[in-house]
Design a protein around this nucleic acid. Structure first.
Lengths: 154, 154
DNA sequence: GTTAAAATCATACTAAAGTATGAGGCTGAA
DNA sequence: TTCAGCCTCATACTTTAGTATGATTTTAAC
């Protein structure tokens, strides 16, 4: 059975040929008794088997596929903000200092930051001073601007 | 000439058939005088034209091209700052006030802004106070944050 | 369990920022 | 030209920010 399956096409081909020849023989004896019948048959066979060949080619040959890869450019907005952790580490900014820095960037006063973080005003002052030292600035506005440029706050 | 060019394949096909028939006729008369010669010829023609068909199919069928569109992500620096002039007008911010606001956003102190714009410290204070009024804030940091959110500074 | 860094808070101070008010000069539109 | 809006600057003041220093407590690492 596996033989038949594997050679299906070949068998089919042979069978087609045999059947065709039988049909032609039958026609030769019983119907067509004309001049140049051989040429007519030959032409018919040629046409038929050309068609068969074409069909076979399409059936058997692997689709000639040319894979055209077209790169479609998709504009992706740069993630507005990806924290530059390396920079944070390099500057030695602590967690609390980052929180204070972020709050400053939000435009809060030291008093407001103290309230937000449940700390005293003096503590905020200490933290912010540390932040300024590490960022090498003197003012919160400058600190915020620099921090933004260093991608350590949004 | 154009006719020939256009029908090259058809002409070639017809010519092949004609030549083949001539060869066979010649063979029939001069060499092969065997039993069942018709069947042999028929088989030969079948084989030949099947081959021709396959060849034709391969020659004629256009390569099936698969176009694969690959989306290539291109990171675009979202230079997405377009000054919201409408907002500037709505808030009634003047040219000078905008300059001062911009300088504040750059982290400059009032003194530095005065130097940059060749103005006195007091003038800067006046301008900044006006800006705070119009933006309804009390501090420069808050003003900068709000201005950024309103797209009136980068 | 010692130790260093981080976090908290305080006091005392200086510097800068912000407010309030007024005034003079300039400019463009009615 | 007059008048409103803008720009400039000043004085006087209050508030907030920032610095310096020191102390105690947490936290995490060794």
């Amino acid at each position: 059975m596996r033989f038949i399956a594997r050679n299906q096409t070949v068998l089919l081909y042979g069978a087609s040929l045999a059947v065709l020849l039988l049909i032609m023989k039958w026609l030769e004896w019983h119907v067509l008794v004309i001049e140049h019948s051989f040429e007519v048959y030959a032409g018919a066979i040629a046409l038929l088997f050309t068609a068969l060949g074409i069909w076979l080619a399409n059936k058997l040959t692997r689709a000639k596929s040319t894979t055209i890869i077209v790169e479609k450019q998709v504009l992706v907005k740069t993630k507005d903000f990806v924290l530059n952790e390396a920079e944070v580490v390099r500057l030695g900014l602590t967690k609390r200092e980052m929180e204070v820095l972020q709050a400053m960037a939000d435009g809060l006063s030291n008093q407001e930051i103290a309230e937000r973080l449940f700390l005293s005003l003096n503590t905020i002052k200490t933290h912010s001073s540390k932040v300024f030292e590490k960022l090498e600035v003197q003012r919160r506005t400058h600190a915020v601007d620099k921090a933004r440029k260093l991608n350590i706050i949004p």
